[in-house]
Nucleic acid binder design. Sequence first.
DNA 1: AATAATTTGTTCGTATACAAATGAATTTCA
DNA 2: TGAAATTCATTTGTATACGAACAAATTATT
Lengths: 165, 165
Amino acid sequence: MHKPRVSQMASQRNLVRQEKPETAHRFASDYALEDQIGHLLRRANQRHTSIFFESLSDQKLTPTQFAALVKIGDEKEVSQNRLGRLTAMDPATILGVVKRLGDRKLIAAHPDPNDGRRSLWRLSSRGERLLTEVLPIATRITRHTLAPLSRGEQSTLLGLLRKLS
Amino acid sequence: MHKPRVSQMASQRNLVRQEKPETAHRFASDYALEDQIGHLLRRANQRHTSIFFESLSDQKLTPTQFAALVKIGDEKEVSQNRLGRLTAMDPATILGVVKRLGDRKLIAAHPDPNDGRRSLWRLSSRGERLLTEVLPIATRITRHTLAPLSRGEQSTLLGLLRKLS
DNA sequence: AATAATTTGTTCGTATACAAATGAATTTCA
DNA sequence: TGAAATTCATTTGTATACGAACAAATTATT
């Protein structure tokens, strides 16, 4: 006997713990993976994602799904590709995100009368309710993610990351 | 007539450009997606990945594949799961990374005489050659990624990200 | 008006990323 | 020593993430 699988999506994520190697010997003595910006960004992202899933395991929203909801809420009405640009997602990526939100009836599409190629996406009332419920949690997720840093460090980090965009 | 698809992997990546919304109206006036740590980390990661693929399009290495090569090079001999811990990858993720590196004969597995469950992975001579060739490029990737920041800002950022790990 | 260039949304393919579950081997410990 | 717990590698399923190519619709150019 075992518990059934989660249907929609993994409910929670455990942050992968990185093991520190004991030896200081390296193939290239001057290249330490742990000190590279790419590795540090990837790990910070992992930690944030882990906190995100922990905090929103009930609502079963992924970070990108949440970002899409937020932007549709801001724009009221937005085409799929533009939503992708607003959330920094490739057209092929936003396609799947929107599809899954649509399947869950959190958003709905209406054809654009002025452009036969486009559909305009809006929040459904379910989507609005969910977004209202989730926004305060998202604020806590941000706080939790930044908790290891002081206030000053937090705004420094945000400023530096903005320059790297 | 059209060009054939790339077989192994996408050759290059174009950074997804984020569009800034014109209106300041937001569903929740106090939640701006662009200012959230998660969104900024995601975008910084996207940019780094884009630079990585641009710089290493010839060698056809992904960031995680490269990380695995580096760590195998450092360790000389390492089991699959431990390699995952060293590179901060889930067992299911490192499985695929190692499989693809193995398929390309960049690494090879030898059974562990002391543990019937494990195989120990090593760099092949091809893998050693490739790693030697790629390490200077990886250093340039790090420099290029951090280029928008001054020297001082760079080490500040690395320090803050380390605290977030 | 005819043509060229662009935009929109889609499909296909590859590669992370991770939860959950599992069998086999090993280690821990009562 | 023998049962329990852990570790290793694997399988299945879901969700990004993005390149490449494409058809249809729209816009820009001539």
